[in-house]
């Protein structure tokens, strides 16, 4: 390759890189730059209706129901204000469990339930040994309870 061609290639690559960067930015930061929508917003009906979107929240304790012998399941998600039912058929990530964060991709069905085609598990920023977690569990329960007591009513976003 001649030096001039090398320069052309390099300039082209630079332009391409910048173009990709810019388009990725636009793609990532549209929708108010949110990766997922809060449950309260969805319950209030303020969500996209024409296309699929993501919701994020905590899986409500004791709400997970599985159909025997199939991958069908349903659970409820909360943002500690509102709750929303979710239906899903498929494999779950290892971290999916009650009380933990979850992100679901899909759309609202006519019966007011979110039908997910993809479930992702979110984890928090805390890391601890299982024994430590067990001794902390009591404390965390109290904290969640007080959070729920102090939480605003569903409907007031």
């Amino acid at each position: 390759m001649k030096p001039r061609q090398q320069r052309m290639l390099a300039v082209g690559l630079a332009a391409l890189g910048i173009a990709i960067a810019a388009s990725l930015t636009l793609r990532a930061f549209k929708d108010n730059m949110m990766f997922f929508i809060d449950i309260s917003v969805v319950v209030a009906g303020d969500h996209p209706t024409e296309r699929t979107f993501r919701i994020g929240g905590l899986v409500v304790d004791g709400s997970v129901e599985r159909r025997e012998g199939s991958l069908e399941m349903s659970f409820r998600v909360t943002d500690l204000k509102c709750e929303l039912g979710v239906r899903y058929t498929g494999v779950l990530p290892d971290l999916f469990r009650e009380g933990q964060g979850v992100v679901a991709h899909g759309s609202m069905a006519d019966d007011g339930v979110f039908v997910a085609d993809k479930i992702l598990a979110k984890h928090d920023e805390n890391y601890m040994a299982p024994e430590v977690a067990a001794s902390l569990a009591k404390h965390v329960e109290d904290q969640t309870a007080s959070l729920q007591d102090g939480a605003a009513e569903c409907g007031s976003i």
Partner: peptide, 23 residues
């Protein structure tokens, strides 16, 4: 293994780190 995905387009942390590589 944790989230259930190798990559999610549209996630702000993932995307901005990829833009860093392009920079």
């Amino acid at each position: 293994p944790m989230w259930g995905t190798w990559w999610e387009w549209g996630d702000p942390r993932l995307t901005s780190e990829l833009i860093l590589l392009f920079l």
